[in-house]
Simulated assay, not measured.
Amino acid sequence: MSFGRLHIARAIPEFLSQFPDLKVDITLDDASVDLVQGGYNLAIRIADLPDSSLVARLLAPSRRVVCGSPGYFRRRGVPQRPDDLRLHDCLSYRYLATTGSWPFKKGQKTWNIPVIGSLSANNGDVLLAAAAAGTGLVLVPTFMVEQQLRSGALRPVLTTYSDSGFSIYAVYPHRRHVIAKVRAFVDCFAERFGPAPYWDEALSMARGPEEN
């Protein structure tokens, strides 16, 4: 839901101004839905997509970063490498298949770090609020944490490591001819987000955990 609230909703007015004859009906839900049974024209999915009967159009990459509040780092210290996360309170997103571990990669080396924490939730905004309050660390998509990184409420760590990564796709059922309104919607958002999405700028500008 967070991507829809933060980025799709922000772009809808511009899309409707370009296509004033279209009507948009949006449902926000973190759970995967059956497009055909639900009567949906398309969905936005952030995942490593399995093979399916759906057509998938890449809209943007989705990088994840470990973040915590300045107060948390003063109290618990700053992890310098993925293995250090075993000693930290790591807040988990329940819908991920890897809820109990966080994956990282650097060069040819990979880690799959078991993590534990005081809070898990099926909503990323709950985890972000807890992290900003100093409860623990979160592994969160950069599209969710743009404003917190810009303000300094959350600080990134382990930025020289990457996680396994997901991508943001528009998916829609196979049809002989793609419905014009679906093509217009997908083209608009693919152009708006792209291979270097605007929200990643906040990560490059973010202060480190020990900076004032």
Rank of each mutant, 00 (worst) to 15 (best):
Leu28Ile: 06
Asp29Ile: 07
Asp30Gln: 11
Ala31Asp: 13
Val33Arg: 15
Val33Phe: 03
Val33Gly: 06
Val36Thr: 14
Gly39Gln: 10
Gly39His: 08
Asn41Met: 05
Asn41His: 15
Ala43Asp: 14
Ile46Arg: 11
Ile46Ala: 12
Asp48Ser: 08
Asp48Glu: 10
Pro50Lys: 09
Pro50Leu: 09
Pro50Ser: 10
Asp51Pro: 04
Val55Asn: 14
Val55Ala: 08
Val55Thr: 14
Ala56Glu: 07
Arg57Tyr: 06
Ser62Asp: 15
Arg64Ser: 14
Arg64Tyr: 13
Arg64Pro: 01
Val66Pro: 00
Val66Leu: 01
Cys67Ser: 07
Gly68Asp: 09
Gly68Lys: 07
Ser69Leu: 05
Pro70His: 12
Gly71Phe: 04
Gly71Tyr: 07
Gly71Ile: 06
Tyr72Phe: 13
Tyr72Lys: 05
Arg74Lys: 15
Arg74Ala: 12
Arg76Cys: 09
Val78Gly: 04
Pro79Thr: 05
Pro82Cys: 09
Asp84Phe: 06
Leu85Gln: 02
Leu85Phe: 02
Arg86Pro: 02
His88Trp: 04
Cys90Pro: 01
Cys90Gln: 03
Tyr93Gly: 05
Tyr93Val: 08
Arg94Val: 08
Tyr95Asn: 08
Ala97Pro: 03
Thr98Leu: 10
Thr98Gly: 02
Trp102Val: 09
Trp102Glu: 02
Trp102His: 05
Trp102Pro: 00
Phe104Cys: 04
Gly107Leu: 03
Gln108Lys: 14
Gln108Val: 04
Lys109Gly: 02
Trp111Gly: 05
Asn112Asp: 14
Ile113Arg: 09
Ile113Leu: 10
Gly117Tyr: 00
Gly117Phe: 01
Ser118Tyr: 03
Asn122Ser: 14
Asn123Glu: 14
Leu128Asp: 03
Ala129Pro: 00
Ala130Tyr: 07
Ala132Cys: 11
Leu137Phe: 11
Val138Thr: 08
Leu139Gly: 01
Val140Leu: 14
Thr142Cys: 04
Phe143Glu: 00
Phe143Pro: 00
